[in-house]
Amino acid sequence: DEIHIHFNGVTIEFRGLTEEAKKALEEAIKRGASEEELKELARRLIK
């Protein structure tokens, strides 16, 4: 299970995320999180 985020022309790929983690990332994107914020969020979620 993986998710691809297209962000300002950059694709960020995450693997092994739970549904909750995906929802958290989607919410962050909707509120306009920066690419760095998304990566940091993903790091926290994957652990």
Rank of each mutant, 00 (worst) to 15 (best):
L17S: 01
A24K: 10
L25T: 00
E2G: 13
V10N: 06
E26F: 14
A42W: 07
A28R: 04
H4W: 03
E2N: 13
E35D: 09
A42F: 13
G16Q: 09
A33C: 10
I46R: 03
E2M: 14
R31E: 08
A42S: 03
E27K: 06
R44C: 11
D1R: 12
N8M: 03
V10M: 10
E13W: 14
L45G: 03
A42L: 13
L45V: 07
S34W: 07
T18Y: 03
I3R: 05
I5C: 12
E40D: 11
K30I: 10
A24E: 14
E40S: 09
E35H: 11
I5P: 02
G16S: 10
A33L: 12
F14C: 13
K23E: 09
A42E: 03
A24N: 09
G32L: 05
I3C: 07
I29G: 03
L25Y: 02
E26M: 14
A33D: 09
E36Y: 07
R43M: 14
T18G: 11
E35K: 05
A28M: 14
K22T: 06
R31T: 10
I46D: 08
K23W: 09
K39C: 15
R44V: 12
E36W: 06
E36P: 07
E27M: 10
E37W: 12
H4I: 13
K39I: 15
K23H: 11
L17Y: 02
I3M: 10
E26L: 15
D1G: 13
K30A: 13
L25V: 13
E36V: 07
L41V: 05
A24F: 11
E37M: 12
E27A: 11
K47N: 08
G16C: 11
R15A: 15
A33I: 14
A28Q: 04
I29Q: 02
D1C: 15
D1M: 13
L25W: 08
E26G: 07
I5R: 00
K39S: 08
R43I: 14
R31M: 10
F7T: 04
E19M: 09
A28L: 13
L41R: 01
E13D: 14
G9Q: 01
L38F: 13
L38D: 00
S34L: 08
G9W: 01
N8V: 02
L41I: 10
H4S: 06
R44W: 09
E20W: 11
F14P: 01
E37N: 04
A33N: 03
G32C: 09
L25C: 03
G9K: 01
R43L: 14
G16K: 07
G16H: 13
T11P: 01
L45M: 13
A21C: 08
A21M: 14
H4Q: 03
F14G: 09
R31Q: 09
F14T: 14
E13Y: 15
G16Y: 13
L45W: 08
L41C: 04
G9S: 02
K30E: 12
N8Y: 01
R15W: 15
I46A: 07
L25S: 00
E36S: 07
F14E: 03
K22C: 06
I46Y: 02
E26W: 14
K22L: 13
L17C: 09
F14I: 15
E13R: 14
E2F: 15
A21V: 09
K39D: 04
L41E: 02
L38I: 10
H4Y: 07
L41A: 03
L38M: 08
S34H: 06
E20S: 09
H6V: 06
E13A: 03
E35A: 14
F14Q: 03
V10F: 02
L41Q: 02
T11G: 01
E37T: 08
A21F: 08
G9C: 05
V10T: 08
K30W: 10
F14N: 02
T18D: 12
I3E: 04
E37D: 08
I12M: 01
A24S: 10
G9M: 00
T11K: 07
K23C: 08
N8L: 05
R43K: 12
I12E: 03
E13N: 03
A21K: 04
A33H: 05
L41H: 02
I3H: 08
V10E: 09
L38S: 00
H6K: 03
L45R: 00
K30S: 13
A33T: 11
E37V: 11
G16D: 15
I46G: 08
G9N: 03
E20F: 06
E27Y: 06
L41K: 01
K39L: 15
H4M: 04
S34I: 04
F14R: 01
L38A: 01
L45H: 07
E20G: 10
R44S: 13
F14Y: 05
S34M: 09
E26P: 00
E19P: 09
A24M: 12
H6P: 00
I5A: 01
E19N: 07
A28H: 06
K30M: 12
H6N: 05
I29H: 04
I46F: 03
I12P: 01
I12G: 01
E20K: 07
E19H: 10
T11M: 04
E36G: 10
